[in-house]
Amino acid sequence: MAVVLAVAWGMTDGEKAPLLFKGGLFLHSVGAALLIVVIAQVPGTHAARCAGSRQPRRLGEWSYSLYLWHWPVYLVLLPRLSWLGEWGALAVAVGVSLAAAAATKRYVEDPVRFRSGWARGRRGPAAVAALALAGLALWLLIPVPAAGAGTVDVDQLR
């Protein structure tokens, strides 16, 4: 099932495929859910051991931060890395997204979740203000995405 999902994603035009928005995402979600059910029912298989190994679990721990970072990184970085080719630019964007997600989990999510010193007492509001200022500075420093980056042609969806 994992191979079928990967092949289906690879054979289509990824996020640019018009069929993705006409039931393709739903079918992909159903396939992923079926894969999870099968793995949960037969936990001793090679596929189940691979899915439960360290790397997928770590990716699951980073998933929220990755969700927050992947799209802005792709919009800003991919158009500027065209000289690396499609796969090279994608590899760099994935690496930057993963690094940003790992840093966000370690330095923002975990301290708040585990009530680190900077998240308690009088230092908490100061830390939040510093993070907000850093976010604002980052927002002001990031260039405007290239025209057409990350857009969907609505006419193809009909």
Rank of each mutant, 00 (worst) to 15 (best):
A32P: 02
K105P: 02
H70P: 02
G135S: 13
P143D: 09
I142Y: 09
V37H: 06
M11V: 12
P72Q: 03
L25C: 06
F114Y: 13
A40N: 09
G88R: 04
L19P: 08
W69E: 01
R158I: 15
A93F: 04
K22S: 10
A146T: 13
A47M: 12
S97G: 07
L141H: 06
R49C: 01
L27M: 09
V30Q: 05
F26V: 15
W118D: 11
D153A: 14
L59F: 04
A147D: 15
K16P: 00
I39E: 06
G124H: 07
R80F: 00
G14T: 06
V38Y: 04
G121F: 05
V7G: 10
A2P: 05
V42R: 13
I39M: 10
I36L: 12
A147E: 15
T45G: 03
G150L: 05
S97E: 04
A48R: 01
V128L: 15
L157Q: 12
V30D: 02
R57Q: 11
A89M: 00
Y107K: 00
S97T: 15
Y107D: 01
G10D: 14
S53T: 03
L84D: 03
W118E: 08
R57E: 14
P143A: 09
L90D: 03
I39T: 08
E109D: 12
L98M: 08
V94W: 09
W139K: 14
W71F: 14
W83A: 15
S29E: 08
A8Y: 12
W87V: 08
A129N: 05
R120A: 04
L84H: 00
R120P: 00
R122A: 12
A103P: 05
R120G: 00
L140K: 14
A89Y: 02
S63A: 15
V4W: 11
A149C: 11
Q55T: 12
V152S: 14
A101E: 02
I142S: 07
L98S: 07
L84M: 08
P143V: 08
G124M: 12
A130E: 11
A6V: 15
V96A: 02
R115S: 10
S29D: 09
G31Q: 02
L75S: 03
A100T: 11
E15A: 15
